[in-house]
């Protein structure tokens, strides 16, 4: 009875968080699902997005949501650069080397940030941080609602763009068969760089949207690293929209599941789901078509 009474609030909380998870999942889906690069640094990228937003907000007094307009393009550029400098060199090597390289990158990024900002927990406050929307017994924190709306918008926009633009076609062609795409006149190297940059930009955007509702510390990305793979796997590997849905599903599962297993085991839910899906439904929950 108590469970049912609290269910609506938990569904809403989960859904709002799910918006951010969707962005995180979509970002990794581009890199891992589509480009087949196992990126262990995705969580660290989110962290970098959070700290970028934090700096813009505390030093330049830029509203975190406006900061998104700087953070995402900046991380896009950094992502392309990282692709050219590092990732490309292991794109054709074994997955193991990709894992180890990106793991090293993650360790380096986390500790670089710690060197600059210390390990202190930090957060930002805005004039609307405390604002709350009430719908009957359900309450929604305004920054959460804004973050959710923006995240959903970005995810849908990305999906539309991938399905209808020239680049989207080139990306899908490259993902299916880079050799054939190359022969058809696609600049494969460029497409791959852009895809990696986009993945990092989405991680950065998720970070920017999380900043007003979360807090930051150098290892915060670890909360999202393995989870982002769960989202991609839930969504059926190659599908960007699937991974976004996977993100929402995971957030809902955590939010509702913690009513049963408690807050401290909620992360275990995602990992167990991850293993079950891989073992029993490797095509993901939402089919296996490529976006």
């Amino acid at each position: 009875m108590e469970f049912l009474a609290q269910l609506p609030q938990n569904l809403v909380s989960g859904l709002l968080l799910g918006g951010m998870y969707a962005l995180i999942g979509a970002g990794l889906a581009l890199v891992f699902g589509v480009m087949d690069i196992v990126n262990m640094a995705h969580g660290a990228f989110i962290m970098v997005g959070m700290y970028t937003t934090f700096v813009l907000c505390t030093r330049l007094r830029l509203d975190p949501y406006l900061g998104l307009l700087v953070t995402a393009p900046l991380l896009f550029g950094v992502g392309m650069l990282l692709h050219r400098l590092l990732i490309e060199r292991v794109a054709h090597a074994s997955h193991m080397n990709q894992i180890l390289l990106t793991l090293g990158l993650s360790v380096a990024l986390v500790n670089l940030v710690q060197l600059i900002f210390t390990a202190n927990y930090q957060q930002i406050r805005t004039s609307y941080s405390d604002a709350v929307i009430r719908l009957g017994s359900i309450t929604m924190n305004v920054p959460y609602v804004i973050s959710f709306a923006l995240a959903t918008g970005i995810t849908l926009g990305l999906y539309y763009w991938l399905m209808h633009s020239e680049f989207g076609r080139a990306l899908r062609a490259t993902a299916q068969d880079p050799m054939a795409a190359q022969l058809m006149g696609v600049n494969v190297r460029r497409v791959q760089s852009v895809a990696f940059g986009l993945g990092m930009a989405l991680a950065g955007a998720a970070g920017a949207l999380l900043t007003p509702v979360y807090y930051l510390y150098p290892t915060v990305g670890a909360n999202f690293g393995l989870k982002s793979f769960t989202m991609v796997v839930l969504g059926g590997m190659g599908s960007v929209v699937g991974a976004a849905l996977g993100g929402v599903t995971l957030a809902l599962a955590e939010s509702v599941g913690q009513m049963l297993v408690g807050h401290e085991l909620k992360d275990a839910i995602g990992f167990v789901v991850f293993l079950l899906v891989l073992l029993f439904k490797p095509a993901g929950l939402f089919g296996g078509q490529r976006a």
């Binding site: 938990n10 909380s13 968080l17 807090y215 510390y217 939010s255 913690q258 807050h263």
Partner: peptide, 8 residues
């Protein structure tokens, strides 16, 4: 480090 406490 996982600050969504509302359900709890």
């Amino acid at each position: 480090g996982a600050p969504d406490f509302k359900p709890m």
